[in-house]
């Protein structure tokens, strides 16, 4: 049997080397294919398609008609509700995104100081609201508009309220309430990521830090823990931001659709309105495309900022 000559990269051109690698590892493509075929059909294709459709008018019946920038012009110049939706979405995301991130980080850090058994219980208590399905409906009992609502009844009894407040129908209260509920359910996957991240920090680093003059837990957090946890912080940030832009479903469940005077109308609601109810697919695609770039943009910005932590 002829001894095969060892193949090294410098023996051949880059193209030929790649071809060789492809042939050698073709089983990899077979194993990745089922997932990635579905992924391209249900995630990549829709993004590309909505980008293309955003330049057309399309009603699902007739062939799309090319209109170039008309949809975008209409969105920004003719659609006041869309402007409200953008402002609400940004306001909501700017509060709940960083809010949920900091809460997750802070409480994960605190929980990490506990003993293992208490730690498991505490983790469950903080994580439970985010996995409990439609449990946020409980807030509508709490803030129910009639006198049997917990807040109304006790507010009246103690003389804080003169008459029952329609909490989830009053423009003044809807936004803060929805933000509170969103924060309450936001200690989710990123929270678990942080809990895990704190646990895998190399303990000897702390001893070394103490020798080098780190005096309290805050300095330890900033100079040792956070820099070693940067990978977890990155993932947590991405999950928090994506989540902050996607709370629309909770809002609909709590205040209904459309919300009174559009005070909690987000881009997601606008999208559903045009896409699922009016079937103006071109227009809805333009909204989806804008939302896509907003989410990606926010994520890129924040991950860039996070690279600076502890440096």
């Amino acid at each position: 049997m002829a001894k095969e000559k060892a193949v090294i990269r410098s023996d051949m051109s880059r193209f030929k080397w790649t071809l060789n690698e492809i042939r050698k590892n073709k089983v990899g493509y077979f194993m990745a294919a089922p997932f990635f075929i579905l992924f391209f059909i249900f995630t990549v294709l829709p993004v590309v398609l909505s980008f293309l459709l955003s330049f057309t008018t399309f009603d699902l019946l007739n062939w799309p008609k090319f209109v170039f920038m008309d949809n975008y012009i209409r969105l920004f110049l003719d659609d006041d509700i869309f402007i409200t939706a953008i402002l609400n979405t940004l306001k909501f995301a700017i509060i709940t995104g960083p809010g949920s991130y900091l809460l997750s980080m802070l409480f994960a850090w605190f929980i990490n100081e506990l003993r293992p058994k208490i730690r498991a219980v505490a983790t469950l208590l903080f994580y439970a609201p985010s996995i409990s399905g439609n449990i946020y409906m409980v807030w509508t009992f709490f803030f129910s508009s009639d006198q049997y609502g917990f807040v109304n009844a006790w507010g009246k009894k103690l003389g804080l309220l003169d008459e029952p407040v329609l909490w989830f129908q009053d423009e003044n209260y809807i936004f803060p309430l929805v933000v509170a509920v969103a924060l309450w359910t936001s200690l989710g996957t990123s929270f678990l990521t942080f809990i895990a991240g704190f646990q895998v920090v190399d303990k000897s680093l702390y001893e070394a830090g103490a020798v080098d003059g780190i005096k309290n837990r805050w300095q330890e957090l900033w100079y040792i823990t956070l820099p070693t946890m940067r990978p977890q912080m990155m993932l947590g940030a991405i999950l928090a931001i994506t989540g902050a832009f996607g709370f629309g479903g909770v809002i609909t469940a709590l205040v209904g659709f459309p919300s009174p005077n559009y005070c909690a109308h987000t881009i997601m609601h606008h999208l559903e309105d045009y896409g699922n109810q009016r079937f103006e697919m071109g227009y809805a695609s333009a909204i989806a495309t804008l939302l896509f770039f907003m989410m990606i943009g926010a994520n890129m910005l924040v991950t860039k900022m996070l690279r600076k932590v502890g440096t």
Partner: peptide, 26 residues
């Protein structure tokens, strides 16, 4: 170690940056 795996993975990472709202309509 098949060629293209880094590209596929970076697409996956980007997909974490938006949610199903964006893709629902299309």
């Amino acid at each position: 170690k098949f060629p293209g795996r880094q590209f596929l993975f970076s697409v996956v990472v980007y997909s974490l940056m938006f949610n199903a709202t964006v893709t629902g309509i299309t």
